[in-house]
Design a protein around this nucleic acid. Sequence first.
DNA 1: ATGATGTAGGCAATCGTTTGCGGCAATCGT
DNA 2: ACGATTGCCGCAAACGATTGCCTACATCAT
Lengths: 334, 334
Amino acid sequence: MQAARPVTLKELASELGLNISTVSRVLSDPLGRDGKWASPDTTQRIFALAETRGYRRNPYAASLRTNRSNLIGVIVPRLQDYVLATIYEGIDEAALSQDYLTMVSNSLDVPQRQRDKAERLLDHRVDGLIFGDAAEANRGYLDELRDRRVPHTLVSRRIAGHTSVTCDDYRGGQLIAEHLVARGRRVFGVIAGKPGTSTSSERTSGFLDALAELGITEDQVTLAPGGFDAPAGREAAEQILSENPATDAIFAVNDFAAIGALGVLHNRGIRVPDDIALAGYNDTALAAGVNLTTVRSPMHEIGSRGFALLIDQLGGITTESEQLQPELIVRDTA
Amino acid sequence: MQAARPVTLKELASELGLNISTVSRVLSDPLGRDGKWASPDTTQRIFALAETRGYRRNPYAASLRTNRSNLIGVIVPRLQDYVLATIYEGIDEAALSQDYLTMVSNSLDVPQRQRDKAERLLDHRVDGLIFGDAAEANRGYLDELRDRRVPHTLVSRRIAGHTSVTCDDYRGGQLIAEHLVARGRRVFGVIAGKPGTSTSSERTSGFLDALAELGITEDQVTLAPGGFDAPAGREAAEQILSENPATDAIFAVNDFAAIGALGVLHNRGIRVPDDIALAGYNDTALAAGVNLTTVRSPMHEIGSRGFALLIDQLGGITTESEQLQPELIVRDTA
DNA sequence: ATGATGTAGGCAATCGTTTGCGGCAATCGT
DNA sequence: ACGATTGCCGCAAACGATTGCCTACATCAT
């Protein structure tokens, strides 16, 4: 049993004794009720009937004519990741407010999947794409899209040659380093995240550079790359602890990895922050939940700006990348 | 600058010296290359040209004719929530494998937003809807949809009169209670989650009933409702601890709330599980990250079954609700 | 030889909108 | 008073696919 078919323009028109085109023009005039396509009286009658009959434009018919879908596609590594889920929320909210709808897909950070999902979205004629999973590994596809002139922006992570909206991750790394050193920490471990992503590399290089600046020598810091989630954090923490037991501060480039690390510290009876200080990155809800010191990155805003820039591109405007400012959030763990 | 417009059926047809209809029939035959709509030779030629010219069906044109969009809408309380993000992943994966695309929206569990988002999706002519935010508060709208004969299913949470796919939450609550009692716990706190949702009420009633069964009297358990996230967990934990300092076990109906509780326990220097045992629900990645004892609920499968049932409905089949089995995961905290 | 059955493919209507181009009055300027 | 505007609105051609109904020919059985 199907839902009742919605009224069409044609039905409205015949019921009003008008031509379809008039009704269409009045109803889709951006000025709404005071558009100038018909007499005030006619305009009122049209809106009134459309209202009572519950008219809803058929977006497919419209898109067929206009060649615009008012749909945009979003590719993220994984929606399970709080950070990208939040960025996506920012995108979706901005989109909704401008009458766009969005479709998301997970790429799991594997290039082939990224390509497949994106093409699939393109097959559905999305007007543009937003990528949350830019990395060295898929730069090739992104470049191809640029050559095909497919409007797109990058969020969260960036690569050269594509307009992106990111947090100033380098600065974020510096903030943590400065804070930790100011609190008297001297031997560092960094849980560096996924190689080949700007979020990882810039946060750690900001951290490392600031440390060097403050006179910490290289042999006092041990790096452990991996992923962005709690299990990866566990592993990295184990590695750091076994490589340098004198470590007195750990910086994880992601809150979830930090929580994983926190788990192993608790297990080993290491007190936080008394024995080892711990800092994360992003200021997720969970960071507040466990009182983790972290850096707030404006995830929601990254999403909405990413969408705004995409709309600019659709309007033919050339866009510039943006970097949003991070903020240090000091809580109990460091 | 726009991306190059894709080839159309008409162009393929004229280039092949065939009629559009023939090309259409061959290309959209479910049997693919060995459909029986044209001679094997013609069929080959059609597929070959479609391939080299990169033909992609225009879904809007198709939908206009067929009145099917191959799109389904998903409404969740909030994608930031790992549990619903995972369920959504399950939905999306199943959908993709059957050539459906999905669109998600957050309702934030507020009825008006749920309605708005759903109607918006319906305006876009989705073929059906999947709700992850069913609750007493929005039963009205759901019932209305049923009356309007809009195909839909519920996932994660359920209400009577709508086909749903959920975890057997009552059983899950029992599992935790039995485990805790077997470990010698006697004074309980339960962080009960959001009122009016089946996940909350069934998990806690399963827990409570099992406790009663095992001879625990009511005055030995204190209930603290709230939400499903870490901050809500913190608050609830504080409340439980102040209401009954003798508490020796806490069950949170959600892992995130459990992590919040874990935070306050650590803060107060309470040892887990030595002083107080703690259990969560869902077995999210984070639970593994902090070695939390929990109940695994098959979130991914809930999503894919929810989608499958929706497809059944679209096929005119009447569907029955399903309950999937939970599994106790014992780790360090209880 | 005849009608039945199959095979290969064309015709044209249709889905619901959008939009370029006019048409017809009433109004205005001079 | 008369051509030029302006205000209102209709006509019909797209947009790109799907699909019911035909046609034309070949094959087959009787």
